[in-house]
Design a protein around this nucleic acid. Structure first.
Lengths: 212, 212
DNA sequence: CCGATTTGACAACATCTCTTGTCAGATACC
DNA sequence: GGTATCTGACAAGAGATGTTGTCAAATCGG
């Protein structure tokens, strides 16, 4: 008894592999279509055509349009956050240097991929509770990369507002920069964004000092 | 020939007055319904029922759903901004005092009216170009109230990013505060928001100094 | 009090989308 | 090569919504 492939091979692929490939094609197509007509304007049919698949395979992988949106968002943003964390890690131990590295990578990617940027910055709001929850988690991850959370448990209420404000500022800047088609140089955008992050950073340092 | 009332009176009202009243009732109803099911979930029929009017009067005053959204948004936000500007004016000439006064009024109103708050903070994004334009103008007005723009024309690109970041921070904070049902005291929220506004304020002062 | 205007209820039409189902054709295993 | 499985194209049903139109009832002016 061989290990796993219980299913017939098609195109050299397991049934599971084919399923996964179709799923990925749908996600890529969704990002593309969202970027052109927006999430609201994206029909299942249009996404399937862009993916060169039929509706049947849509419902094979996703329960509904919202599920695909969540999958696409998680896919893109998850990857971005990994890169940001890596860039921050490579920048050493200095908070300021880590911050600038992560922000630079963030805005660089935003400029390289305008369509997903527009969608996942702008249109990800007000879809529904499930989407809001995913977005909420993503924002916290984003915040934790920019300014790693102090383990200080006391940093409860006001610290979280600081994180939220910081993320709001960065995303607001990003949103405008993207929709105005990148009028400023990346270094300038990073500098302005960093100046808002420093507000949260200063407070984090303060509470760290206090706890020593 | 009397001055104006060319039309028959109904309920003691001119035809124009009746029209205006219906329009206002629709706007109020829209805010209410949006607050319960969201803009996306709000049907024309539901809004008309809430307004105790029929669909005919909807199309009498608005070309489509989006037009009503824009009207409702402008109505609510315009009034809020007037109040904020008045509060800032009453607080004197000190930038910091004006800022705190405006922010305090802002968050106070947000707490008094949770439903419109949720809608117009969260759901106003990604509807369409027309809505985006209105939102854009509103955000600039908001920013100008918090930190009055220096007449310095040089404050072009980077200054606008600062304004955007500031507004993003404040709105991000507001959004979380509202959706978590106001966990922190208003003074605390104002303090955190103000700390972000100070970033933009400091930069504005800097450029003012430079230009003297 | 009568007639004209305004109103409110509701139906009807058109359109769109989601979702499931059918069926012929293509592909891989034996 | 035959057969079972997988695939792609497409249609059709169900359901919802926007939008316009009809018609009787209510209201006001003379």
């Amino acid at each position: 008894m061989a290990s796993s492939p219980k299913a017939r091979l098609y195109g050299g692929m397991d049934a599971e592999e084919r399923r996964a490939e179709r799923r990925l094609k749908l996600i890529d197509a969704a990002v593309e279509v969202y970027g052109e007509v927006g999430y609201r304007g994206a029909t299942v049919k249009a996404i399937c055509e862009a993916a060169e698949l039929t509706e049947r395979y849509f419902y094979e992988s996703f329960a509904n349009s919202e599920a695909l949106l969540i999958a696409a968002y998680s896919h893109v943003v998850g990857h971005l956050h990994e890169e940001m964390a890596a860039a921050a890690g490579a920048a050493g131990d200095d908070s300021e240097a880590r911050l600038r590295a992560a922000l630079t990578l963030y805005f660089t990617r935003l400029k390289q991929h305008p369509k997903p940027a527009r969608v996942f910055l702008l249109e990800i709001a007000g879809i529904g509770p499930a989407v809001d929850a995913v977005k909420h988690d993503a924002l916290r991850a984003f915040s934790d990369i920019l300014v790693p959370p102090a383990s200080d448990p006391k940093r409860g209420d006001k610290g979280s507002l600081l994180s939220i404000g910081m993320v709001g500022a960065v995303i607001g800047i990003a949103l405008r920069w993207v929709s105005k088609q990148y009028p400023q140089a990346i270094e300038d955008v990073v500098a302005v964004a960093a100046s808002f992050c420093r507000v949260a950073l200063a407070e984090a340092d303060k509470s760290k000092l206090r706890s020593v």
